[in-house]
Structure formats: structure tokens, C-alpha cells
């Protein structure tokens, strides 16, 4: 019985790991700041799914739901602050490309 329930968790886990790979790949490969946030969102989705599956597989679904509700609130606030910071960076540099921003910074240093 116990292992029967747990099979749910193990059948979901490969997909969750692949979601994590997608998010991490996006964060490390992209040069666009907003795209980094997209990767972060994918990561958070994977984590949310993991919590729900862990709760469902062991029958602690109420606790898992409480965790997910709190989690979503936190996620929204952090993403909003991050988006605000991105907009602030754009106002200073007129660019969201990390390479271009680095270039601007290097020129700024050589000017001094």
C-alpha cells in the first residue's frame, strides 16, 4: 500500500527534474535580464509541483496546500521586486543585454 502511493511521487519526479533543467539552462545561457526571470519562474513552478506531489504521495495534501499558498505569495512579491530592479537597470543603461551592460560599465571605468 505504502509503495503503491509512493509510486506517484517517483513517476512525477523525472518530469520535475526536467523542468529544473529547463529553468537552469535558461538562467545560465541567456543574456537578457527578463529571460532570466522567465527561467526563475520555470524553476519556481517545478518546486511548486514538487511540493504538491510530495504532499499528495504521502497523503499530507492539506499541509502541502498551505505551503503552496504561502509559496505563491512569496514568489509574486520576489518576482515583482526583481522586475522593478530590471526596469531600474533599463532606465540607467537603455539595455537589458548583460553583455552590453558590462561593456557600458567597462567604458565607464576607462573614462575615469
Amino acid at each position: 500500500m505504502n509503495s503503491e502511493i509512493a509510486r506517484l511521487f517517483w513517476s512525477f519526479s523525472p518530469f520535475i527534474i526536467m523542468l529544473f533543467i529547463i529553468g537552469l539552462y535558461c538562467i545560465f545561457v541567456t543574456f537578457n535580464l527578463i529571460r532570466v526571470l522567465v527561467g526563475v519562474e520555470v524553476l519556481m513552478k517545478a518546486a511548486t509541483l514538487l511540493v504538491i506531489v510530495a504532499g499528495a504521495a504521502t497523503g499530507h495534501i492539506a499541509l502541502a496546500q498551505v505551503i503552496v499558498v504561502t509559496l505563491i505569495v512569496i514568489e509574486v512579491v520576489v518576482i515583482t521586486i526583481a522586475a522593478g530592479v530590471v526596469i531600474g537597470i533599463w532606465r540607467h543603461n537603455n539595455s537589458l543585454d548583460t553583455r552590453k551592460i558590462r561593456q557600458i560599465n567597462d567604458e565607464g571605468i576607462s573614462d575615469e
Partner: peptide, 30 residues
């Protein structure tokens, strides 16, 4: 300007860290 860029770097790494912690919390829940 520099503070915003430093903050963005910090935010992304910090979110990576919390995702790791969150996955580990989910595993502990399991």
C-alpha cells in the same frame, strides 16, 4: 546604477538558493 546591477545578481542567486531549499523542504515533506 551599480547598486541595481548588484541587486539583480543577488536576487537571481538568492532565488536559486531558495529553490534548492524549497526542493529539499518538499523532499523532507515526502
Amino acid at each position: 546604477k551599480n547598486a541595481l546591477e548588484a541587486a539583480f545578481k543577488y536576487i537571481v542567486l538568492s532565488i536559486l538558493a531558495t529553490t534548492m531549499m524549497l526542493s529539499s523542504i518538499a523532499l523532507f515533506l515526502f
